[in-house]
């Protein structure tokens, strides 16, 4: 087991959900898995510092100590974030979106290439499809310089399966090459299995399971096999 790189504790009510989460991130890629409304997105948003009404504590391992980010302003947390619903900047072109936080043109070009957006770089994001917006949002997050944590909220909404499978592995490769740990949110079993990530299962605001994808998602795997006709 790798060293813990982030510690997050979130408590408080968000709408109908009462959150009570203590999470230690150690894997290069951790997946928060759970049904809609279980509070997964709130956990990511709390880490970003976007939910000041909740009781949150957030630490990052730096060098040989811990840095407390709980009171750090949102824009100084060195987090790359691709939120649910893409939240692209509708007044900017594809490449301007990707370059929003980027430090260099090289970083923009690399992110555009990673997410197969090169051909549409000069187009306005108003005219592109939902899946393409999602890729713009991911590319924008991957172009953030000096990020220490990558947060991806339902990153493949509207992206077709083949593209997703392809992107997922390339994203994993890129994140590991740059040494940036990832915490992603999904309710898609396949996504978790493909990544072979550390899976944290969330239900109704609480963590109800943790381990490798195959272990934690055994029930879902069995159901999938039944659906596909492998088992009676």
């Amino acid at each position: 087991m790798a060293d813990v790189h982030h510690q997050l504790r979130v408590a408080g009510s968000r709408g109908a959900v009462r959150l009570e989460v203590a999470l230690e991130l150690s894997a290069p890629w951790t997946v928060l898995f759970g049904p809609s409304g279980s509070g997964k997105s709130s956990v990511l948003r709390a880490a970003c510092g976007l939910l000041p009404e909740l009781d949150v504590s957030f630490q990052r391992s730096e060098g040989d100590g811990w840095v407390d980010l709980t009171k750090t302003p949102v824009h100084r947390r060195k987090i790359a974030y691709a939120p649910q619903g893409a939240a692209v900047f509708t007044h900017l072109s594809v490449q301007e979106n990707v370059g929003f936080a980027a430090a260099s043109n090289t970083a923009v070009d690399a992110a555009l290439a990673l997410f197969v957006l090169g051909a549409m770089r000069t187009r306005s994001v108003r005219g592109i499809s939902g899946g393409e917006k999602q890729r713009v949002s991911l590319a924008r997050a991957f172009a953030v310089p000096n990020a220490r944590l990558l947060l991806l909220d339902e990153p493949f909404t509207g992206v077709d399966r083949r593209m997703r499978d392809d992107l997922l592995l390339r994203m994993q490769e890129r994140a590991e090459a740059e040494g940036v740990p990832v915490l992603s949110v999904t309710h898609d079993v396949e996504e978790a299995l493909l990544l072979d990530a550390d899976v944290v299962r969330m239900e109704a605001g609480r963590i109800t399971g943790r381990g490798t994808a195959r272990l934690v998602l055994a029930e879902e795997c069995a159901r999938m096999r039944r659906v596909l006709g492998f088992e009676a």
Partner: peptide, 25 residues
């Protein structure tokens, strides 16, 4: 508000968020 939040998380200071996101929109 999601767009403004995202700009903040991506490292934009309050002034930059205003200048690059809120004002043009």
């Amino acid at each position: 508000p999601g767009v403004v939040e995202t700009a903040r998380v991506l490292g934009a200071s309050p002034w930059r968020v205003f200048q690059r996101v809120i004002f043009p929109l």
